[in-house]
Design a protein around this nucleic acid. Structure first.
Lengths: 244, 244
DNA sequence: CGGACTTTTGACCAGGCTCAATAATAGTGG
DNA sequence: CCACTATTATTGAGCCTGGTCAAAAGTCCG
């Protein structure tokens, strides 16, 4: 298990039919009683997607809501001439497909093998309506996503190439550290092209930025698509946009 | 009354203490009974901000929630060296200051004289908790804002200068047309610098894009900071990112 | 080991930025 | 109403960051 969730997941009973699901819904564990949680989980069914498979495409009617339990996806939109913008990367624990629109505005494609629970949207919505505490959780999640989206807006609107890459890496490191405070290595399951399409750059520029950060001694590139954080402070300064 | 809300507001009793407020809370009119609506409005008090004044600054503790009833604001963040990114422009009817964080991540500054209702956050939250239908409205609003933010991400990440300006103008026109379907003129209360800081460009590039659109016969620039839409189709093609 | 793919690096190019000058516009006070 | 000023918008010239195109090096498979 090389993935960033690391030890905690490894310690869980993998054979339990909803073992993974149980963890990834921990957001709701605080909000729901055991009985209600079981009831909620009964609404969904588990499934798997292989790399390159899409859970839904831009323009599809939004019939399902997803909760990712393993693996990473990219959420992107294509312009008519093929330019691509990746709005965000979706990781274990994230919900996906929540929308008030009729159709999805983005395509969700698996980067690696992905396990997920899927809920019929109608049943999901009804459950949320009947359980205000869930509604509140969903609201908090939307608010967090909005904050993250606006962070990305600042990045795309005003940061230089190397600042964007520094911000991206720090966001990855922080996500790992939330669970493993002393973890200094993160795996990047996405290609340079994916990162570029997320940061509004080209793959070449992303690669040059990685090289520059490595030469400055801020990071190290490790086999198996991993990155090690060597010096956090200067990386944070770069990410914050302090010129120098 | 040159402003885009146009006739509808003009027809309201201006002397009524909450006349304006009544309109701008129309989002909730459908969700709440008259008695509850009155109860809700009693939570807030009206106030005014002059151009340049800020309702709150980046880093302030979030103690109030705002609902704008007249005028336009810009919501922005500054990088340490002065680079600025305007996340969005806030218009009559919009809520402001809704966050699950303790502090505001952005500064909200008035572009023109702004009237607004303000609600103590605690009371606002409690009311929302007690009225699930309000919670649902808030969730829908957050979802819409998230969709708009992601639209902006596509714009900033992958569109050219002229495509960004075309998208920006169309968004303005569409907002007007939602209320006045045959309205083809929009006032832009923000400066070229503001537009530039919203679109990730410089004021010179924005100005050149306006000139280019005018020379192509897609728009006309009218005194009093207004723009007329002459040819919608080609502007939409540009905004959508069809190269050519 | 071989082939496909990804990443890195290099050389050159261009879209948009910077700096600067001019023009238009909006206030302001006489 | 108009001159005067301050601010904003437009236009021009040159530059630079990051894009494009191409080649080499590295990686991951079977």
């Amino acid at each position: 298990m090389t993935d960033e969730r690391g030890l905690r997941l490894a310690a869980l009973p993998r054979d339990h039919p909803c073992g993974r699901c149980e963890v990834r819904l921990d957001t709701f564990c605080g909000a729901l009683k055991a009985k209600e949680l079981a009831e909620f989980k009964a609404l969904g069914s588990t499934a798997r997607a292989e790399p390159g498979q899409c859970l839904f495409h831009e323009g599809d009617t939004a019939e399902l809501v997803f909760n990712v339990t393993r693996g990473t996806l990219k959420l992107y939109r294509l312009l008519p001439d093929g330019r691509r913008q990746i709005a965000s990367f979706i990781q274990p624990g994230d919900f996906l497909g929540l929308t008030v629109e009729e159709v999805h505005a983005y395509t969700a494609e698996a980067l690696e093998p992905v396990d997920y629970c899927r809920f019929p949207r109608e049943r999901f919505d009804r459950f949320a309506d009947e359980h205000p505490e869930i509604g509140r959780e969903l609201y908090a999640m939307a608010a967090h996503e909005l904050a993250a989206a606006r962070e990305q807006i600042v990045l795309l609107g005003r940061k230089t190439a190397i600042e964007r890459v520094a911000s991206f890496l720090l966001a990855r490191f922080d996500r790992v550290r939330a669970r493993n405070p002393d973890w200094e290595i993160v795996r990047l399951p996405m290609t340079r092209t994916d990162i570029a399409d997320h940061l509004g750059l080209t793959k070449e520029t992303v690669s040059r930025a990685f090289t520059s950060l490595r030469r400055r001694g801020l990071i190290a590139l490790i086999p198996d698509a991993r990155v090690e954080l060597l010096r956090r402070e200067p990386l944070e300064h770069l990410a914050a946009g302090e010129r120098g």
